[in-house]
């Protein structure tokens, strides 16, 4: 079974395969984000406590999920690379932090803007906020390691190991609100007893999140294609 998949490990083939997928992602993502934003900003109800500020949530929560999902993806690609040693795995993993860090920044900024009217402060050092800031620094670290060792197998290894070490932070972010008392509220959607968020707010959030997820895939596929092209050029120019 695994042998059959080997032909997709050829970067050239892979680049061609993701071309149509990438476009489907983009052209589904844009209308979904537009619909999600329009419902979220104009047609969804205000919250009984926060009032209209709740609308920040549609951007904040969807980008927070993508920031975490992106890391899980990097983690698995790194593990696969270290076990099977297919360069394509780490090539893909290395393209993710550039995109993911943008979503992490969006999460932190929108959260901060929401915090001022709701909590009365832009920033506190509670477990959730601090661990999410650490995620930003881990992404920065991964980007720097990639830049420092460009085109070097040592870079691939350091990147993979660092991303595995940093993965410890992901469950800490998710469960920080349950393990310690924090200013940040506990999970409203992904929790054992089902969502504690009203369906009228959950629908635009889900539309937004799906849209942002597809946009994220479009962005990383584009990055992966250019990374493959870059490697090809490098290989060809080293031949003469």
């Amino acid at each position: 079974m695994l042998r059959k998949l080997h032909k997709y490990a050829n970067p050239n083939k892979f680049s061609l395969i993701i071309m149509p997928i990438k476009n489907v992602c983009l052209y589904t993502a844009l209308p979904l984000i537009a619909i999600g934003l329009i419902i979220g900003l104009f047609f969804s109800p205000p919250d009984y406590q926060q009032g209209e500020t709740v609308r920040i949530m549609y951007i904040h929560v969807s980008s927070a999920w993508i920031s975490l999902f992106a890391y899980v993806l990097i983690f698995f690609l790194s593990v696969f690379y270290l076990i099977w040693k297919f360069p394509l795995f780490v090539l893909m993993a290395k393209e993710i932090p550039f995109v993911a860090i943008i979503f992490t920044l969006i999460t932190l900024i929108t959260g901060s803007l929401w915090g001022k009217p709701t909590w009365g402060t832009y920033w506190v050092w509670d477990a959730r906020l601090t661990s999410f800031l650490i995620l930003l620094f881990i992404y920065l670290g991964l980007i720097f390691i990639d830049k420092a060792f460009k085109y070097n197998v040592n870079g691939d290894l350091s990147f993979s190991y660092l991303s595995i070490i940093g993965a410890i932070n992901i469950p800490i972010i998710k469960f920080s609100v349950d393990w310690w008392n924090t200013l940040h509220q506990p999970a409203s959607v992904i929790r054992a007893s089902g969502p504690s968020i009203n369906i009228e707010m959950l629908i635009p959030l889900m539309i937004m999140s799906t849209g942002v997820l597809l946009l994220f895939f479009y962005l990383i596929f584009t990055n992966i294609q250019s990374a493959i092209a870059e490697k090809k050029i490098l290989f060809l120019s080293s031949k003469d």
Binding site: P45, Q49, M57, W119, Q185, S196, I197, N198, M201
Partner: peptide, 18 residues
């Protein structure tokens, strides 16, 4: 010296809360 409000995990429209 400072008082912060905590929000809970329940999100609902005002009518439903009422």
């Amino acid at each position: 010296e400072k008082v912060l409000a905590k929000h809970d995990e329940n999100y609902m429209p005002p009518e439903i809360h009422k």
